[in-house]
Design a protein around this nucleic acid. Structure first.
Lengths: 134, 134
DNA sequence: AATGCACCCTGTAGCCACTACAGGTTCAAG
DNA sequence: CTTGAACCTGTAGTGGCTACAGGGTGCATT
């Protein structure tokens, strides 16, 4: 018998104790059985699911997406295409985000390099931030 | 005399009407004068500041960082070094974020490409998500 | 002067994904 | 049987907005 307390489940799955309770509350993970005193006891299947959620979150899936993936998994007979679709959409979003951040990086880098430490009369970074778009 | 309503100020600065009121509430921008009836009227300096905040936000600065930058600007005699420091720290954070996202992208890409549409018995994406870290 | 209506006002609640308490209870070791 | 770490619930806070509800204002037109 494997019965983990929430603390052990947290250690094992990498999901914070508070977060596990939060996931239960919002229905991302099922409520586990309780001891007579009311404490949660987790089995292997719960840990597996928690680790799944954690992995998804590490990959940047929103909880909505995670929910969608779990529904596909739970209704056995999920189609690979549906899963692939969720993943591809997310991959696209990640790529767009990277492009956005790279644009920020470029703009910041240019701003910072324009100001190379000399005590110029006006700060070129502040000037750039006050300047119009672009 | 330039006196913009909040709507005009929003158009002009690119900051949403609700967001302008929010910025005023949290002290990012000063409260403008009002008409007798209580409506806000913005001058050039307000617009300039709103545009500054907007530009900072576009570059990914947090409102905390924006606040810090504005304090440097407001206390005239800000040092360029201090500004540069805020910008450099943020640039670092942006770069770290890009690296994180690129790792996600790689992992997602590998997952998705392992599943090339064929109806395999088990979905490799789901398998990968259920698998341990890495 | 009256009316219409687009815009403005405040205040509150909601979003996401947690995190951090307060104030109390349970479990297991010694 | 006592200790104390870990657990429980419920609520409130985070950041950065956004979206109402329910009302008031300001300007153009009639």
């Amino acid at each position: 018998m494997t019965a983990f307390t929430i603390g052990r489940a947290a250690q094992h799955s990498g999901v914070n104790v508070e977060t596990i309770r939060y996931y239960e509350r919002i229905g991302i993970v099922p409520a586990p059985p309780r001891t007579v005193g009311g404490q949660r006891r987790y089995g292997q299947e719960h840990l597996r699911r928690l680790a799944f959620v954690r992995r998804c979150r590490e990959l940047g899936f929103s909880l909505g997406e995670v929910r969608a993936l779990l529904q596909l998994v739970d209704g056995r007979a999920y189609s690979c295409d549906e899963v692939r679709d969720v993943a591809l959409r997310h991959l696209d979003a990640v790529r767009r985000r990277i492009i956005d951040l790279q644009a920020m990086e470029k703009a910041l880098d240019e701003m910072v390099s324009r100001c190379d430490g000399g005590s110029v009369p006006e700060c070129p970074i502040i000037d750039a931030l006050f300047a119009a778009n672009g």
